[in-house]
């Protein structure tokens, strides 16, 4: 029996990166446990509960890959509510609490040996990054096929991880496409919503390819519809849901979709599974 007392482990913020700040305020935090014990074990696609002491807790998808050189936890946080606003006030050296990791993970076994397509909207890129960095890691790259990415942002100022993009673009067998909502001077990439661009910009094979998508609920719905229209098997479309996870243990009841607790048997679901679930996300 595993006793869980709902209490976090203390971690220190080692680095804060201001990702965007004009339309949306997004920062990336690097965290390291202070108790000197080992880094937590996790899988791409899992999430953690982060405590800002004295304020509260919120769930964040892990934005780093569990590779051998992974020494820090990385999360990207959009300033939206009470906890995220307080977190944005914190600086290097400040302490936070971490519980987790929680939830299931991206299906690595299923993805192994296949082509991988990532379609993200805004901060939906953050949880996907845990798998992107995994797939593109030099030690693991040979386990996967071709990698295609379509990253959507509101505007050029809202791009995430610009310091990583070069590395991703230069990875072997990898193409990265970017799109923004509206045309903008000096922008040389795509314009428009990602679901409208999938057919044109990506080579969508129906065999031996796994599609990962994450973003605002409305984008996920549009993208999955488009992929299904292109003949992709719903089982090969993987997404991660953002619900209001709170306990992370399948108890508190805030993330139910039907009988499922998204914090426990999610947040990663194939589109096939989503179709079987009540439409309540």
């Amino acid at each position: 029996m595993k006793v869980d007392n709902y209490l976090p482990r203390e971690a220190e913020i080692t680095k804060v990166v201001q990702e965007t700040g004009i339309n949306l305020n997004i920062k990336t935090f690097h965290l390291r446990f202070t108790d000197g014990e080992a880094m937590m074990e996790f899988q791409p696609g899992q999430f953690l509960m982060l405590t800002v002491y004295g304020v509260g807790e919120a769930p964040f998808g892990l934005a780093c890959a569990p590779t051998t050189d992974c020494q820090e936890i990385i999360i990207s946080v959009k300033e939206t509510g009470k906890v995220t606003s307080a977190l944005h006030e914190l600086q290097e050296g400040d302490s936070v609490g971490i519980r987790g990791p929680y939830g299931n993970s991206f299906p690595l076994e299923k993805t192994s040996g296949k082509d991988v397509v990532f379609i993200s909207g805004g901060i939906g890129l953050a949880p996907l990054r845990s798998l992107i960095d995994y797939v593109l890691h030099p030690d693991l790259r040979q386990d996967f096929g071709r990698v295609q990415m379509l990253q959507a942002f509101r505007s050029p100022e809202d791009m995430l991880y610009d310091y990583e993009q070069q590395r991703w673009e230069n990875s072997p067998g990898t193409t990265v496409k970017y799109t923004i909502d509206r045309p903008c001077e000096g922008w040389e990439h795509c314009v428009g919503f990602p679901h409208d661009l999938i057919d044109e910009e990506l080579d969508c094979q129906t065999e031996d390819t796994v599609y990962y998508t994450c973003g605002p609920p409305i984008m996920i719905k549009a993208v999955t519809n488009e992929l299904v229209n292109l003949g992709i098997d719903p089982e090969d479309i993987i997404t991660t849901l953002e619900m209001r996870m709170s306990c992370g243990l399948g108890k508190c009841g805030k993330c139910n979709i039907g009988h499922r607790y998204v914090c426990k048997d999610g947040p990663v679901y194939s589109y096939k599974e989503l179709l079987e679930m009540p439409d309540e996300f």
Binding site: Y6, Y53, G54, G81, E242, C252, G253, K254, C255
Partner: peptide
């Protein structure tokens, strides 16, 4: 639900009948 008083973590009954129960930030 959890709530905090300073650094003290507390738990209180919540209700699925409340609009805030599932509301995202």
């Amino acid at each position: 639900k959890f709530f905090w008083e300073e650094i003290e973590k507390n738990r209180a009954w919540d209700s699925c009948m409340f609009s805030l129960f599932t509301a995202h930030a």
